[in-house]
């Protein structure tokens, strides 16, 4: 057998050369508490910590910048309290940010800071531009409604009012995440944890968003189920070319999924790089500690 040399398609070449980030986040900060004159801006000093000595306010996320490219998976890792969840909840507009901007190239040509969008625009963005999969499926699903209904809710929000077409799309999506079509009208509360996460993923993808946010999606699942969900996420990413931000405290999950990784500590990005570099040649003492705790 001869191994054929691969040719890159023209389209591929072009898309790489003028690569435009899908998501650009600049100066994202989030403060909890009233704040005072001493903590009006987040300190970049790692040693200082993120809690204000004077008023007790906390900068949960401090001046985070990053870019995410189409179809890419960015890992965000850190221990609990590092600001991972606040960051991803801010990105999904669940949380009001204190400072910063976020643009998405497919929304208004990337000209609008999504954090400042009107409530109606934000709702549109959450239905069309991004999907979110929460660690706790109760946050992402209506547990007592049918699984197909959970997807229908998203489709209806995108002005689909044809039951037949809605059900067609719902079964297509559920099939993709390997939920048997015969169970599409069962409520997620009847399902196992892994199935609930899969329903949540299918719901988040209902309107083909270019961006998917995943917050500790495999935490709390059995190991075998975890592997299945991870594999599903990978194959969806390949098939749909959807960009993802994967937040996890589990370096194993990050290693399986992410091309690039950011390490968060006390709300600061202490290191970012290629995932295998972060894992094998960590530069920051904290990352070294984290990596060595794993291995």
């Amino acid at each position: 057998m001869a191994i054929e040399p691969l040719q890159m398609s023209k389209g591929m070449t072009e898309s790489i050369e003028k690569e435009i980030p899908l998501v650009t986040v600049k100066g994202l900060s989030k403060q909890f508490g009233s704040g005072c004159e001493y903590c009006s801006t987040p300190s970049h000093e790692e040693k200082e910590g993120n809690r204000c000595k004077h008023c007790g306010s906390i900068w949960a996320v401090r001046d985070i910048d990053f870019e995410l490219y189409p179809g890419e998976i960015l890992g965000v890792v850190g221990e609990s309290g590092s600001g991972k969840s606040t960051m991803i909840r801010s990105l999904f507009l669940d949380e009001e940010v204190t400072n910063g901007s976020m643009t998405v190239s497919t929304y208004n040509k990337g000209k609008i800071n999504i954090f400042n969008a009107s409530a109606q625009q934000k709702r549109y963005i959450r239905n069309h531009v991004m999907g979110m999969v929460y660690q706790n499926p109760y946050l992402g699903l209506r547990m007592t409604f049918s699984s197909s209904g959970n997807i229908a809710e998203k489709l209806i929000a995108a002005d689909n009012f044809h039951v037949g077409k809605i059900r067609e799309r719902a079964s297509e999506l559920l099939d993709k995440v390997e939920i048997p079509i015969s169970r599409m009208d069962e409520p997620p509360k009847n399902f196992s944890g892994g199935m609930q996460q899969r329903v949540q993923i299918s719901k988040a993808l209902a309107n083909n968003p270019p961006l998917l946010l995943l917050d500790e999606v495999t935490t709390g699942l059995d190991l075998s189920v975890q592997a299945k969900v991870l594999d599903l996420i990978r194959s969806l990413q390949r098939e749909l070319n959807v960009a993802m931000i994967v937040v996890s405290h589990d370096l194993g999950v990050i290693r399986m999924l992410a091309d690039r990784t950011m390490v968060l500590r006390q709300g600061l990005v202490v290191e970012k790089g290629l995932t295998d570099q972060i894992l094998e040649d960590p530069q920051h003492p904290y990352t070294q500690l984290l990596v060595h705790s794993l291995l």
Binding site: Q120, R142, K154, I156, V163, I166, D185
Partner: peptide
């Protein structure tokens, strides 16, 4: 109130959808 302000009526539509399913 917020749903009315944003014309976010998908929950009600969902109730109708669930009726049809059931």
């Amino acid at each position: 109130r917020r749903q009315h302000a944003e014309m976010d009526y998908s929950a009600k539509w969902l109730q109708l959808y669930e009726n049809i399913v059931k």
